[in-house]
């Protein structure tokens, strides 16, 4: 055990960098995913069939193909059409896009689950469609969606490890380097696994807290 510590210690600052890059990439991607997801979810309620169809296809396609294929599509494809952005930017964009597909589904089911009676009450009081959406439907949907949204975000964190395949030295990328320089792949990857598990565990604690906070006062189960 002590031997392991001695071997690994010099590499910890490097891995900490990787960890921070993971956190940074995930933070950006989560923001992107929520924005894209919210947009796509609202497009799916559009009156226009084509707009609805496109929004549905977006979530269907990105949910039913592997992330690594999507990532390579962007990583190798974008330069072909003259878009030269770094690997990190590409990775964050790809992660936002797949996250957006899942977030859009979560928001959509949250919206569909809002009690129709509550919406009717808002309608007959003369509130505009926009006000009903922003002040009633969305806030209620957000509260009921905390948990499913949480699993999407946790999945995004786990998925972010795949960014290491396009030369991004996030947590998994740095671990790969440390594993090969120390010749201790078993120990390094085991530690890495535990690190990810702790990270997602911490996230799930946070999600539970948010869920409780937001829903403390509210019964989203129904009218009575």
């Amino acid at each position: 055990m002590n031997q392991l510590w001695v071997t690994l210690r010099p590499h910890l600052p490097f891995m900490l960098d990787g960890f921070l890059l993971t956190v940074f990439a995930c933070t950006l991607a989560i923001i992107g995913a929520v924005l894209i997801g919210a947009l796509m979810a609202s497009l799916r309620t559009s009156g226009n069939r084509i707009v609805r169809g496109v929004a549905f296809a977006y979530s269907d396609v990105f949910r039913n193909t592997p992330f690594i294929v999507q990532l390579f599509f962007f990583f190798y494809g974008l330069p072909e059409i003259g878009i030269y952005i770094g690997a990190f930017e590409t990775g964050v964009i790809a992660l936002s896009i797949i996250g957006g597909a899942f977030v859009s589904d979560v928001i959509r089911s949250g919206i569909l689950a809002v009690d129709q009676g509550v919406i009717e009450a808002a309608k007959v009081s003369g509130l505009s469609r926009w006000t009903i959406f922003t002040k009633i439907v969305l806030p209620i949907a957000l509260r009921t969606s905390v948990r499913p949204m949480g699993s999407v975000l946790i999945n995004m964190v786990l998925t972010s490890s795949i960014l290491s395949t396009i030369t991004i030295n996030e947590l998994t990328g740095t671990a790969k380097i440390v594993a090969s320089t120390t010749f201790k792949p078993f120990e390094v990857y085991l530690v890495l696994l535990v690190l990810y598990a702790s990270l997602t565990y911490a996230l799930s604690l946070l999600i539970n807290t948010v869920h409780r906070r937001l829903n403390r006062a509210m019964d989203t189960g129904g009218a009575a």
Binding site: I154, L158, T159, S160, S161, I162, S164, T165, T172, A175, K176, A179, F183, K184, P185, F186, E187, V188, Y189, L190, L192, L193, V194, Y196, A197, T200, Y201
Partner: peptide
Amino acid sequence: SEALKNSPVLVQLFLVFFGLPAF
């Protein structure tokens, strides 16, 4: 099963493919 559900599959693959033979 909790560890497997809460860590990246890529890391699990590395652990098994690179880690197990070395250890």
